[in-house]
Write a protein that binds this DNA or RNA. Sequence first.
DNA 1: ATGCCACTTCAAGTCAACTTGAGGTCAAGC
DNA 2: GCTTGACCTCAAGTTGACTTGAAGTGGCAT
Lengths: 141, 141
Amino acid sequence: MLDIAEVARQSGIPASTLRYYEEQGLIRSAGRRGLRRIFEPDVLTRLSLISLGQIAGFSLAEIAEILRDHEAPAIARERLLDKADALDLRIRELTALRDGLRHTARCTAPSHLECPSFRRLMRVALAHAARRRRAAARAAD
Amino acid sequence: MLDIAEVARQSGIPASTLRYYEEQGLIRSAGRRGLRRIFEPDVLTRLSLISLGQIAGFSLAEIAEILRDHEAPAIARERLLDKADALDLRIRELTALRDGLRHTARCTAPSHLECPSFRRLMRVALAHAARRRRAAARAAD
DNA sequence: ATGCCACTTCAAGTCAACTTGAGGTCAAGC
DNA sequence: GCTTGACCTCAAGTTGACTTGAAGTGGCAT
Protein backbone atom coordinates (compact mmCIF):
# COMPACT_ATOMS: atom_id res chain seq x y z
CA MET A 1 0.00 0.00 0.00
CA LEU A 2 1.24 3.43 -0.93
CA ASP A 3 0.51 6.84 0.47
CA ILE A 4 -0.16 9.74 -1.84
CA ALA A 5 3.40 11.07 -1.65
CA GLU A 6 4.76 7.72 -2.73
CA VAL A 7 2.36 7.49 -5.65
CA ALA A 8 3.35 11.02 -6.64
CA ARG A 9 7.02 10.12 -6.47
CA GLN A 10 6.72 6.91 -8.46
CA SER A 11 4.39 8.29 -11.09
CA GLY A 12 5.81 11.79 -11.33
CA ILE A 13 2.27 13.16 -10.97
CA PRO A 14 1.71 15.82 -8.27
CA ALA A 15 -0.44 14.95 -5.26
CA SER A 16 -2.86 17.75 -6.12
CA THR A 17 -3.43 16.12 -9.49
CA LEU A 18 -3.94 12.72 -7.91
CA ARG A 19 -6.65 14.14 -5.65
CA TYR A 20 -8.18 15.81 -8.67
CA TYR A 21 -8.15 12.54 -10.63
CA GLU A 22 -9.84 10.77 -7.75
CA GLU A 23 -12.51 13.45 -7.58
CA GLN A 24 -13.06 12.99 -11.31
CA GLY A 25 -13.41 9.25 -10.93
CA LEU A 26 -10.24 8.39 -12.82
CA ILE A 27 -8.59 6.59 -9.94
CA ARG A 28 -9.70 5.45 -6.53
CA SER A 29 -7.92 5.01 -3.27
CA ALA A 30 -8.13 1.71 -1.45
CA GLY A 31 -9.15 3.43 1.76
CA ARG A 32 -7.88 5.77 4.40
CA ARG A 33 -5.42 5.60 7.22
CA GLY A 34 -6.97 8.25 9.40
CA LEU A 35 -7.65 11.05 6.97
CA ARG A 36 -4.96 9.97 4.60
CA ARG A 37 -5.54 8.14 1.38
CA ILE A 38 -3.82 4.85 0.76
CA PHE A 39 -3.47 3.39 -2.69
CA GLU A 40 -2.98 -0.07 -4.07
CA PRO A 41 0.16 -0.38 -6.20
CA ASP A 42 -1.85 -1.01 -9.36
CA VAL A 43 -2.97 2.61 -9.32
CA LEU A 44 0.37 3.23 -11.02
CA THR A 45 -0.73 1.17 -13.99
CA ARG A 46 -3.95 3.12 -14.14
CA LEU A 47 -2.02 6.38 -14.10
CA SER A 48 0.09 5.13 -17.00
CA LEU A 49 -3.09 4.40 -18.90
CA ILE A 50 -4.36 7.89 -18.17
CA SER A 51 -1.15 9.45 -19.50
CA LEU A 52 -1.40 7.22 -22.52
CA GLY A 53 -4.90 8.42 -23.19
CA GLN A 54 -3.86 12.02 -22.83
CA ILE A 55 -1.10 11.64 -25.39
CA ALA A 56 -3.60 10.02 -27.73
CA GLY A 57 -5.69 13.16 -27.46
CA PHE A 58 -8.50 11.90 -25.25
CA SER A 59 -10.04 14.29 -22.74
CA LEU A 60 -10.10 13.17 -19.13
CA ALA A 61 -13.84 12.58 -19.42
CA GLU A 62 -13.29 10.23 -22.35
CA ILE A 63 -10.52 8.45 -20.50
CA ALA A 64 -12.80 7.95 -17.52
CA GLU A 65 -15.38 6.41 -19.81
CA ILE A 66 -12.88 4.11 -21.45
CA LEU A 67 -11.51 3.00 -18.11
CA ARG A 68 -15.03 2.24 -16.95
CA ASP A 69 -15.59 0.16 -20.07
CA HIS A 70 -12.27 -1.48 -19.56
CA GLU A 71 -13.29 -2.73 -16.18
CA ALA A 72 -16.26 -4.43 -17.70
CA PRO A 73 -15.57 -7.88 -19.18
CA ALA A 74 -15.27 -6.64 -22.77
CA ILE A 75 -12.86 -3.95 -23.88
CA ALA A 76 -14.11 -1.20 -26.15
CA ARG A 77 -12.11 -2.42 -29.13
CA GLU A 78 -13.99 -0.42 -31.66
CA ARG A 79 -13.26 2.78 -29.79
CA LEU A 80 -9.57 2.03 -29.73
CA LEU A 81 -9.49 1.35 -33.45
CA ASP A 82 -11.35 4.58 -34.13
CA LYS A 83 -8.79 6.47 -32.16
CA ALA A 84 -5.98 4.68 -33.97
CA ASP A 85 -7.45 5.84 -37.26
CA ALA A 86 -7.69 9.39 -35.97
CA LEU A 87 -4.05 9.15 -34.98
CA ASP A 88 -3.15 7.98 -38.47
CA LEU A 89 -4.67 11.10 -39.91
CA ARG A 90 -2.91 13.29 -37.40
CA ILE A 91 0.42 11.58 -38.05
CA ARG A 92 0.04 12.19 -41.77
CA GLU A 93 -0.70 15.84 -41.13
CA LEU A 94 2.21 16.29 -38.80
CA THR A 95 4.51 14.56 -41.26
CA ALA A 96 3.43 16.92 -44.03
CA LEU A 97 3.89 19.81 -41.68
CA ARG A 98 7.35 18.70 -40.65
CA ASP A 99 8.41 18.33 -44.26
CA GLY A 100 6.92 21.72 -44.98
CA LEU A 101 8.90 23.31 -42.18
CA ARG A 102 12.12 21.71 -43.39
CA HIS A 103 11.41 22.85 -46.89
CA THR A 104 10.68 26.36 -45.74
CA ALA A 105 13.95 26.52 -43.85
CA ARG A 106 15.93 25.18 -46.80
CA CYS A 107 14.19 26.97 -49.61
CA THR A 108 15.88 30.19 -50.60
CA ALA A 109 13.10 31.37 -52.87
CA PRO A 110 12.30 35.06 -52.47
CA SER A 111 8.93 34.23 -50.97
CA HIS A 112 7.66 30.93 -49.64
CA LEU A 113 4.25 31.93 -50.79
CA GLU A 114 5.37 31.33 -54.35
CA CYS A 115 6.31 27.77 -53.56
CA PRO A 116 3.58 25.31 -54.57
CA SER A 117 4.34 22.78 -51.85
CA PHE A 118 4.13 25.49 -49.24
CA ARG A 119 0.81 26.67 -50.58
CA ARG A 120 -0.54 23.15 -50.56
CA LEU A 121 0.52 22.82 -46.96
CA MET A 122 -1.41 25.94 -46.04
CA ARG A 123 -4.55 24.62 -47.64
CA VAL A 124 -4.24 21.49 -45.53
CA ALA A 125 -3.85 23.65 -42.46
CA LEU A 126 -7.05 25.61 -43.02
CA ALA A 127 -8.96 22.43 -43.75
CA HIS A 128 -7.70 20.86 -40.57
CA ALA A 129 -8.62 23.92 -38.51
CA ALA A 130 -12.12 23.96 -39.98
CA ARG A 131 -12.54 20.29 -39.16
CA ARG A 132 -11.49 20.91 -35.58
CA ARG A 133 -13.98 23.74 -35.22
CA ARG A 134 -16.78 21.58 -36.52
CA ALA A 135 -15.83 18.83 -34.10
CA ALA A 136 -15.79 21.29 -31.21
CA ALA A 137 -19.20 22.61 -32.21
CA ARG A 138 -20.62 19.07 -32.33
CA ALA A 139 -19.17 18.33 -28.90
CA ALA A 140 -20.84 21.45 -27.50
CA ASP A 141 -24.31 20.01 -28.12
CA MET B 1 -10.20 44.71 -49.99
CA LEU B 2 -12.35 42.44 -47.83
CA ASP B 3 -14.66 43.13 -44.95
CA ILE B 4 -14.58 40.95 -41.87
CA ALA B 5 -17.53 38.82 -42.96
CA GLU B 6 -15.81 38.03 -46.24
CA VAL B 7 -12.58 37.07 -44.50
CA ALA B 8 -14.60 34.88 -42.15
CA ARG B 9 -16.36 33.24 -45.06
CA GLN B 10 -13.21 32.59 -47.08
CA SER B 11 -11.10 31.41 -44.15
CA GLY B 12 -13.79 29.61 -42.20
CA ILE B 13 -12.70 31.51 -39.09
CA PRO B 14 -15.43 33.33 -37.11
CA ALA B 15 -15.41 37.14 -37.06
CA SER B 16 -15.08 37.12 -33.27
CA THR B 17 -11.88 35.13 -33.64
CA LEU B 18 -10.55 37.48 -36.29
CA ARG B 19 -11.05 40.44 -33.94
CA TYR B 20 -9.35 38.49 -31.19
CA TYR B 21 -6.41 37.68 -33.47
CA GLU B 22 -6.06 41.34 -34.37
CA GLU B 23 -6.11 42.30 -30.70
CA GLN B 24 -3.35 39.73 -30.10
CA GLY B 25 -1.23 41.14 -32.90
CA LEU B 26 -1.53 38.08 -35.12
CA ILE B 27 -3.15 39.88 -38.01
CA ARG B 28 -3.81 43.50 -38.84
CA SER B 29 -6.51 45.22 -40.78
CA ALA B 30 -5.57 47.56 -43.60
CA GLY B 31 -7.79 50.27 -42.14
CA ARG B 32 -11.38 51.12 -41.54
CA ARG B 33 -14.39 52.07 -43.58
CA GLY B 34 -16.19 54.04 -40.92
CA LEU B 35 -16.01 51.76 -37.89
CA ARG B 36 -15.61 48.65 -39.96
CA ARG B 37 -12.35 46.85 -40.51
CA ILE B 38 -11.17 46.22 -44.03
CA PHE B 39 -8.53 43.61 -44.79
CA GLU B 40 -6.09 43.10 -47.58
CA PRO B 41 -6.53 39.75 -49.32
CA ASP B 42 -3.16 38.49 -48.09
CA VAL B 43 -4.58 38.26 -44.58
CA LEU B 44 -5.91 34.91 -45.78
CA THR B 45 -2.37 33.65 -46.27
CA ARG B 46 -1.50 34.83 -42.80
CA LEU B 47 -4.51 33.03 -41.36
CA SER B 48 -3.37 29.86 -43.10
CA LEU B 49 0.02 30.27 -41.48
CA ILE B 50 -1.64 30.69 -38.10
CA SER B 51 -3.64 27.49 -38.55
CA LEU B 52 -0.48 25.77 -39.67
CA GLY B 53 1.30 26.86 -36.53
CA GLN B 54 -1.56 25.69 -34.36
CA ILE B 55 -1.45 22.23 -35.91
CA ALA B 56 2.28 22.17 -35.29
CA GLY B 57 1.54 22.75 -31.62
CA PHE B 58 2.63 26.37 -31.29
CA SER B 59 0.74 28.64 -28.92
CA LEU B 60 -0.69 31.82 -30.40
CA ALA B 61 2.04 33.80 -28.62
CA GLU B 62 4.73 31.71 -30.30
CA ILE B 63 3.04 32.08 -33.64
CA ALA B 64 2.94 35.85 -33.20
CA GLU B 65 6.66 35.83 -32.52
CA ILE B 66 7.45 33.69 -35.53
CA LEU B 67 5.33 35.86 -37.78
CA ARG B 68 7.16 38.91 -36.50
CA ASP B 69 10.50 37.28 -37.29
CA HIS B 70 9.21 36.27 -40.64
CA GLU B 71 8.53 39.84 -41.56
CA ALA B 72 12.09 40.80 -40.83
CA PRO B 73 14.53 40.34 -43.74
CA ALA B 74 15.85 37.01 -42.50
CA ILE B 75 13.60 34.09 -41.69
CA ALA B 76 14.14 32.28 -38.42
CA ARG B 77 15.36 29.13 -40.11
CA GLU B 78 16.86 27.66 -37.04
CA ARG B 79 13.57 27.96 -35.19
CA LEU B 80 11.76 26.16 -37.95
CA LEU B 81 14.27 23.33 -37.96
CA ASP B 82 14.00 23.03 -34.20
CA LYS B 83 10.27 22.70 -34.47
CA ALA B 84 10.64 20.16 -37.25
CA ASP B 85 12.81 18.07 -34.94
CA ALA B 86 10.26 18.37 -32.17
CA LEU B 87 7.63 17.20 -34.61
CA ASP B 88 9.76 14.20 -35.50
CA LEU B 89 9.77 13.14 -31.89
CA ARG B 90 6.06 13.64 -31.56
CA ILE B 91 5.39 11.71 -34.76
CA ARG B 92 7.41 8.80 -33.45
CA GLU B 93 5.47 8.84 -30.20
CA LEU B 94 2.12 8.98 -31.90
CA THR B 95 3.12 6.19 -34.25
CA ALA B 96 4.08 3.99 -31.31
CA LEU B 97 0.84 4.89 -29.64
CA ARG B 98 -1.22 4.11 -32.70
CA ASP B 99 0.45 0.73 -33.07
CA GLY B 100 -0.12 0.13 -29.40
CA LEU B 101 -3.81 0.89 -29.71
CA ARG B 102 -4.15 -1.43 -32.71
CA HIS B 103 -2.34 -4.12 -30.82
CA THR B 104 -4.52 -3.65 -27.79
CA ALA B 105 -7.65 -3.97 -29.88
CA ARG B 106 -6.38 -7.06 -31.67
CA CYS B 107 -4.74 -8.82 -28.76
CA THR B 108 -6.97 -11.36 -27.09
CA ALA B 109 -4.70 -11.95 -24.12
CA PRO B 110 -6.60 -12.11 -20.84
CA SER B 111 -5.04 -8.87 -19.70
CA HIS B 112 -3.18 -6.29 -21.72
CA LEU B 113 -1.08 -5.61 -18.73
CA GLU B 114 0.65 -8.92 -19.32
CA CYS B 115 1.66 -7.95 -22.81
CA PRO B 116 5.24 -6.64 -22.96
CA SER B 117 4.65 -4.26 -25.82
CA PHE B 118 1.72 -2.75 -24.00
CA ARG B 119 3.79 -2.29 -20.89
CA ARG B 120 6.55 -0.60 -22.90
CA LEU B 121 3.97 1.72 -24.34
CA MET B 122 2.84 2.72 -20.89
CA ARG B 123 6.37 3.54 -19.82
CA VAL B 124 6.70 5.80 -22.83
CA ALA B 125 3.45 7.48 -21.86
CA LEU B 126 4.56 8.32 -18.33
CA ALA B 127 7.89 9.60 -19.58
CA HIS B 128 6.17 11.80 -22.12
CA ALA B 129 3.78 13.18 -19.51
CA ALA B 130 6.65 13.98 -17.17
CA ARG B 131 8.48 15.77 -19.95
CA ARG B 132 5.40 17.84 -20.69
CA ARG B 133 5.06 18.84 -17.06
CA ARG B 134 8.68 19.92 -16.91
CA ALA B 135 8.24 21.98 -20.06
CA ALA B 136 5.13 23.62 -18.64
CA ALA B 137 6.99 24.43 -15.41
CA ARG B 138 9.84 26.00 -17.37
CA ALA B 139 7.39 28.07 -19.39
CA ALA B 140 5.80 29.35 -16.18
CA ASP B 141 8.98 31.20 -15.17
C1' DA C 1 -33.79 60.45 -45.46
C1' DT C 2 -34.49 56.64 -42.89
C1' DG C 3 -34.41 52.30 -41.09
C1' DC C 4 -32.19 47.95 -40.81
C1' DC C 5 -28.74 45.20 -39.37
C1' DA C 6 -23.94 44.06 -39.95
C1' DC C 7 -20.62 45.87 -37.83
C1' DT C 8 -18.28 47.99 -33.53
C1' DT C 9 -16.33 47.96 -28.34
C1' DC C 10 -15.59 46.21 -23.88
C1' DA C 11 -16.43 43.39 -20.10
C1' DA C 12 -17.53 39.15 -18.69
C1' DG C 13 -18.27 34.21 -19.37
C1' DT C 14 -16.62 29.39 -20.68
C1' DC C 15 -14.01 25.12 -20.78
C1' DA C 16 -10.48 21.83 -19.47
C1' DA C 17 -7.18 20.59 -16.45
C1' DC C 18 -5.16 21.73 -12.91
C1' DT C 19 -2.95 24.71 -8.95
C1' DT C 20 -3.12 27.48 -4.89
C1' DG C 21 -4.47 29.03 -0.36
C1' DA C 22 -6.66 29.12 3.97
C1' DG C 23 -7.79 26.72 7.66
C1' DG C 24 -8.08 22.15 9.84
C1' DT C 25 -6.54 17.15 11.30
C1' DC C 26 -3.76 13.64 13.00
C1' DA C 27 0.31 9.99 12.85
C1' DA C 28 4.72 9.81 14.38
C1' DG C 29 9.08 11.04 16.34
C1' DC C 30 11.19 13.26 20.40
C1' DG D 1 2.29 14.59 25.70
C1' DC D 2 3.58 17.88 22.42
C1' DT D 3 5.07 19.56 18.37
C1' DT D 4 5.80 19.07 13.58
C1' DG D 5 4.54 18.82 9.14
C1' DA D 6 2.55 15.89 5.72
C1' DC D 7 -1.77 15.18 4.82
C1' DC D 8 -6.83 16.72 4.43
C1' DT D 9 -11.10 19.74 2.37
C1' DC D 10 -13.25 23.20 -0.16
C1' DA D 11 -13.42 27.33 -2.63
C1' DA D 12 -11.28 30.15 -5.61
C1' DG D 13 -7.67 31.29 -8.98
C1' DT D 14 -5.04 30.37 -13.48
C1' DT D 15 -4.10 29.78 -18.45
C1' DG D 16 -5.15 29.76 -23.34
C1' DA D 17 -8.16 30.44 -26.77
C1' DC D 18 -11.93 31.93 -27.62
C1' DT D 19 -17.31 33.18 -27.27
C1' DT D 20 -21.16 35.84 -25.71
C1' DG D 21 -23.91 39.79 -24.50
C1' DA D 22 -25.18 44.41 -24.01
C1' DA D 23 -25.09 48.71 -25.78
C1' DG D 24 -23.75 51.67 -29.47
C1' DT D 25 -22.65 53.29 -34.58
C1' DG D 26 -23.01 53.97 -39.19
C1' DG D 27 -23.04 52.03 -44.35
C1' DC D 28 -26.17 51.17 -47.66
C1' DA D 29 -30.60 49.78 -49.96
C1' DT D 30 -35.09 51.63 -50.51
